[in-house]
């Protein structure tokens, strides 16, 4: 029988001295072979940057393998653990050093799972950062194909000239990022039905 879940509460304003840690944003060493920068800004419903948000990413490696190796909190410089965390800066910007995720099965569209937390945000929000290149895989993706074009584009990262990825997060508004809900994962928006 399913048990009633413990409710979420906001991460609040004071997580900054507790949750972020040295090495959190560096899933791989900057400058190492295959490393890229994943960066973006978190915005509120007025289009203003949010200076007290935290972002986590969780992803497969370049070959689509999901790491089950420990060491995210105390990185050894070699093991890819697939998970990272960073707070945003005063301008709402976050930066990770990571690798392009590979497809977890042939033909699948690769993506990075991204989670955002913030003061004022009562529960974490999930979204996906899709790689922009494989148009065929993107077209066949079961999530993306359910979305209208303007909504779909919020989930596809922009490739920078230097090979990095830019992914901005808009918590609210016209161009609001598509946030995800999963089976057995209740989340209440408080919108009037």
């Amino acid at each position: 029988m399913a048990l009633p879940p413990t409710p979420a509460q906001t991460v609040g304003p004071f997580f900054g001295y507790a949750l972020p840690y040295d090495g959190g944003p560096q899933l791989v060493a900057p400058g190492s072979s295959g490393s890229i920068r994943l960066h973006g800004t978190v915005y509120d419903g007025d289009g203003a940057p949010i200076p007290d948000a935290m972002v986590e990413i969780w992803q497969p490696d370049q070959h689509g393998r999901i790491s089950q190796q420990p060491g995210s909190l105390s990185r050894d410089g070699h093991t890819f653990t697939g998970w990272g965390r960073t707070e945003v800066n005063y301008e709402g910007q976050f930066t990770f050093t990571t690798v392009n995720p590979g497809p977890t099965a042939p033909g699948k569209a690769p993506y990075i799972l991204l989670t955002v937390f913030a003061r004022g945000l009562m529960d974490r929000l999930f979204t996906r950062v899709y790689m922009p290149e494989d148009r065929q895989a993107l077209g066949a993706d079961p999530l993306l194909s359910t979305l209208a074009e303007d909504r779909r584009s919020t989930l596809i990262a922009h490739r920078d000239d230097d090979g990095g990825l830019r992914f901005d997060i808009r918590l609210q508004g016209e161009d609001e990022t598509v946030f995800l809900t999963y089976p057995r994962t209740p989340q209440f928006t408080g919108r009037r039905a």
Partner: peptide, 29 residues
């Protein structure tokens, strides 16, 4: 759980999604 949009908590006003959360089937990751 808690509501993302709860106006008495003023900081939630501009920081909650106004569009429906999109259903996704969980994949490997």
């Amino acid at each position: 759980s808690a509501r993302l949009n709860f106006p008495p908590y003023r900081s939630s006003l501009l920081r909650h999604p106004t569009k429906s959360l999109q259903h996704a089937d969980p994949e490997d990751i």
